[in-house]
Design a protein around this nucleic acid. Sequence first.
DNA 1: GTCTATACCACGATAGAC
DNA 2: GTCTATCGTGGTATAGAC
Lengths: 236, 236
Amino acid sequence: MPRNGNSSQDRVIDPTDTKSKILDAAEELFMEHGFEATSLRLITTAAGVNLAAVNYHFGSKEELFQAVLTRRLDPMNQDRMQLLSAYESASNGKPLTCEKILAAMFIPALKLARDHQQGGKNFLRLLGRAYADPAPFIREFLSSQYREMIARFRSAFSFALPHIPREELSWRLHFVMGALSYTLAGADMLKIISQIHPEEATNDELLLKRLAPFLAAGLRSPSPAEDGGHHLFQET
Amino acid sequence: MPRNGNSSQDRVIDPTDTKSKILDAAEELFMEHGFEATSLRLITTAAGVNLAAVNYHFGSKEELFQAVLTRRLDPMNQDRMQLLSAYESASNGKPLTCEKILAAMFIPALKLARDHQQGGKNFLRLLGRAYADPAPFIREFLSSQYREMIARFRSAFSFALPHIPREELSWRLHFVMGALSYTLAGADMLKIISQIHPEEATNDELLLKRLAPFLAAGLRSPSPAEDGGHHLFQET
DNA sequence: GTCTATACCACGATAGAC
DNA sequence: GTCTATCGTGGTATAGAC
């Protein structure tokens, strides 16, 4: 039994084999309905394979979900780190601006959202949702997938913003990841927040173009430690 | 059959009746395991009532979930709007600062997190997760719960930041809600982002104290329309 | 009105035949 | 590798007791 793992001598990507058919169908359905609401019976029917094939090829529904995420997530994070390195090389040892570092995070995400013909558009929404999912297997999986990239970007920000204490910077990076995830996941929420035209709300590029300056301003803002602490929450 | 709806002549809150027992047990279990992962059999066993009682009193698992959220959410949003009005009255017609408006959003959330003896601590995490949930019934429910409060705060920000176009402000409010939700939901994620001490990561007050200045800086930042547009995403 | 017992169908998972 | 049969558990609906 192969179970998971494209490790040893997997034959190259053949979109007609059972494993690929499951992966494609699962991606589309997970994107549309989320993890829990998508049944294996729905996936296997759409893929035209037997119900038991999922368990044979992936081991479980959870492992199938991780395989769906990994297939796109891993290349994206590699792209992010390479782009950041390219920017750093071009700057001759001078710190990058926050906007530039954020661009290294956002551009590969946009590429992912647009390049893949099917599903790419909505993959980021699936990812954003996964961030807030309480299931331990999802949290641990994302943790391992993101650890390296986060560490890489934290040192870039640390170099760009030397006056911000390292711990404060960790918080702000957390806020950045949060706003990014939520923004990508919650496009529907725009209808709540307001009268933004729907056709514009689905345009991820425009969305990130507005998010980046917003976050850059927050990243650059004076550290609470150095502005005397204005005790926001202690008034009536 | 009563179904849902505390509308007509419900007897006052009696924490020993079946409906309250279900509500309390459900809140605790939903907070711990999320919506999908919490079974009705688990809830009814913990509450010491019959399985069918949920369907009798609430109609469905979904409606039970909404009842759990409403019980705390509705008073919180009322508090937010009252606090904002109080700040505005005290300012003699002058615009509030962004920090002050954000305080009106955050303080009632903190009160909720701390005042209620059981569960209050983790209720905001449950709420943050619900924000990113793809289930239509959750999205529609939150939409209706938040619509009034969001409109109220948007006009406050609009008055405080007259130079920001109304549409840009809608985006920024969306980012604020996103960062807030995600931050509250994803306390576990701090372990990924970094070496922040765990005991500190669970301190919601400290968390919001750092988030508020970060968001205020983003809200105040110059509008992309007025800084000439630096075309972040069009370079290589 | 309130509560209970019970039955129903869909789900994820797995064993074993082919 | 693939398929069928089956198991335990999930949400839900209802008949009937008090």
